[in-house]
Amino acid sequence: MEPRNQTAISEFLLLGLTDDPELQPLIFILFLSMYLATILGNLLIILAVRSDSHLHTPMYIFLSILSINDMCLSTTTIPHMLVSIQTQDQSIFYRSCLAQICLVLFFGNFESCLLAVMAYDRYVAICHPLRYIVIMSTRMCLSLSLFPLVISIMDALLHSLMILRLSFCTELSIPHFFCELAQIIRLTCSDTLVDNIVLYVAACILGGVPAFGIMLSYIHVVSSILRMPSSERKYKAFSTCGSHLLVVTLFYGTGLGVYISSFITNSSKNVAVASVMYSVVPQMMNPFIYSLRNRDMQKALWKLINRIASLLQCESGLELWV
């Protein structure tokens, strides 16, 4: 197979989850529903936090940032897939593919780091409640948000720049529904030793370090909760951490499941289907997890919904009067 330089590449082919034409409408409806649920759920979380002054705390500010990140991550992959199904066009421009890789890496890494920041916030709130306001100051919250942001941008740009120097073969079909870095590297005719080393080192740092930080935070949290004399205080402390623990388990559990499945099966299609679990499902489930298990969030959402309903009734009343 004759290699050709990457400058001559105009587009890749995204093969999607299946090539069965009968399943395409079902996949379209499924992913459209998941995308709309993701956008609506996360948007409600953001509006609820913004509209309720009681939720203007570091915990809910970080939750709002997480919701924005989830919407952006889903928007990076799903809309292009939906358009491809509707138009029956599986091609994606080289620059668009490169941009998608960069954005997926950025939002994925930022979510991993943000979950660690939220775990630290719970650690301070439960283990050092009297010093919480002092420790989690505005300056500290800003630093905890900006540092992961900068690290994620640097990692995404590093991998994107490394792809630019690669040459690709004539086979440019990607067995996935979005441009994934590992799949792109497999298509190249260049020496990918350095790329693979950087990929695994970055994954260990940006995935392993936040995961270790989350584990360490919750070891101290659980230890502190068990020492509380009141069972009511224990329940309240566990309830404040339960939603975050579920989100962390869903995010890292699905990601680990995809990683393991890539070794167990040789089928790229199966890996692509499994990738849905970490690239789509967590972003859709996060708002439901936080709203169903958090009473403060439930109250804020009901207030927001009632306010929206009142506004709609007022508008309809004005229209009838006119």
Rank of each mutant, 00 (worst) to 15 (best):
P3M: 01
T7W: 07
L14P: 11
L17P: 05
E22Q: 11
E22H: 11
E22L: 07
L23H: 14
L23V: 05
Q24Y: 10
Y35A: 04
L47A: 08
S51V: 00
S51E: 04
H56N: 07
I68E: 01
M71S: 01
S74V: 00
T75K: 00
T77Y: 05
H80W: 10
L82E: 10
Y94W: 15
C97R: 06
C102L: 12
V104G: 03
Y123C: 05
A125T: 07
H128V: 00
S137V: 01
D155S: 11
L157K: 09
L157M: 10
L157E: 08
I174D: 06
H176D: 14
F177W: 14
C179H: 06
L187W: 03
D191Y: 00
D195Y: 02
I197D: 02
V198M: 03
V198W: 07
V198Q: 05
L199H: 11
C204A: 13
A211T: 10
F212W: 13
F212C: 09
G213D: 06
G213C: 15
Y218C: 02
S224Y: 06
S230K: 02
R233A: 14
R233Y: 11
Y235I: 10
F238L: 11
S243F: 10
L245T: 05
L246W: 09
V248P: 10
T265Y: 09
S268A: 14
S275I: 00
S275L: 01
V276R: 03
S279A: 10
M284K: 02
I289R: 02
Q298A: 09
K299F: 14
I305F: 07
I308H: 10
A309E: 13
L312S: 14
C314F: 12
